[in-house]
Design a binder for these strands. Structure first.
Lengths: 146, 146
DNA sequence: AGAATACTTGCAAATGATTTGCATCTTTAG
DNA sequence: CTAAAGATGCAAATCATTTGCAAGTATTCT
């Protein structure tokens, strides 16, 4: 029976990333969150258990994890423009963002043949795309009168 | 026969924005650019003609113009994450972004009934959305071997 | 296991985009 | 033409993110 720590180590090794205490913890937070997270979110979750951890270490590892294909970096255009990171494990999807509480839900990709059409029309080599929908979630609708 | 300056003044007045020398100039740059621009882009274009202009003034006015419905703020997820601003004058559209030279082309909206579908499924009140396609433009494809 | 090497981290300071406080100037309304 | 409201220049602050460097830790080699 494997504990979380071991599972995190396994994942790191699979991606050719050296195993360190801080990487295990960071990854654990990301897995537990089940939603895109910011560097400061991770940092604050680890204040108690890793009081020595620095925010710069979190950032360095976010960048590493992105480079190694473990995470995807998102700009959700919320508030202050902080970057969000999410695990690359699910199929391709997009995001529905509550502009009041910042909750994020996954959305199926609505683009279909659109990319192909654009490629034909513009001769661009298409690399990627993003679709974001901004709204107000049912919970926030209840508690506001805007 | 109206010159540019008068036209800019007219636009500002229409939107209930006080007319100042720096606002006229800023707006002129935005109109001439015919593409989304950054604050620093505007600033550098005006170095010679308005040597006294401060970047903070540009930013303050970008925010004002957005609030007054003259501009729309975009994050194109290019490079350093600088914000872009574009005129609100055309119909609803999206962006095709060259990740090498940062050129931006407008795209028709491919979403159709999608928003409505999401609204029904999630009970979110939908406010807005954005679609970005990232690629490499024909010109950049020629001059790179990636 | 122990040493050598390579990579990570803590820490502090730098960076880059954007904002803000404040005194001074300019625009607009009366 | 003057007062009141608002805008600007200027410098400093802020916020997210990055970086240099010395000390610490993981991996490799023996």
């Amino acid at each position: 029976m494997k504990d979380k720590k071991e599972k995190m180590q396994e994942i790191l090794r699979e991606k050719d990333i050296r195993v360190t205490r801080q990487r295990e913890s960071i990854l654990e937070v990301i897995f537990e969150a089940e939603k895109p997270v910011t560097a400061t979110y991770i940092f604050s979750r680890l204040q108690e258990s890793c009081p020595n951890l620095k925010l710069s270490t979190v950032y360095r590892n976010m960048n590493l994890f992105v480079k190694k294909g473990l995470l995807r970096k998102l700009s959700l255009d919320i508030d202050n423009n902080e970057s969000y990171f999410e695990l690359i494990r699910d199929e391709h999807h997009h995001h529905l963002i509550c502009i009041q509480c910042n909750k994020v839900l996954p959305l199926d990709c609505p683009l279909g043949e659109f990319e192909e059409k654009i490629r034909e029309e513009t001769a661009y080599r298409i690399i990627d795309h993003s679709v974001k929908i901004f709204g107000i979630c049912p919970h926030c609708q209840e508690f506001s009168n805007t």
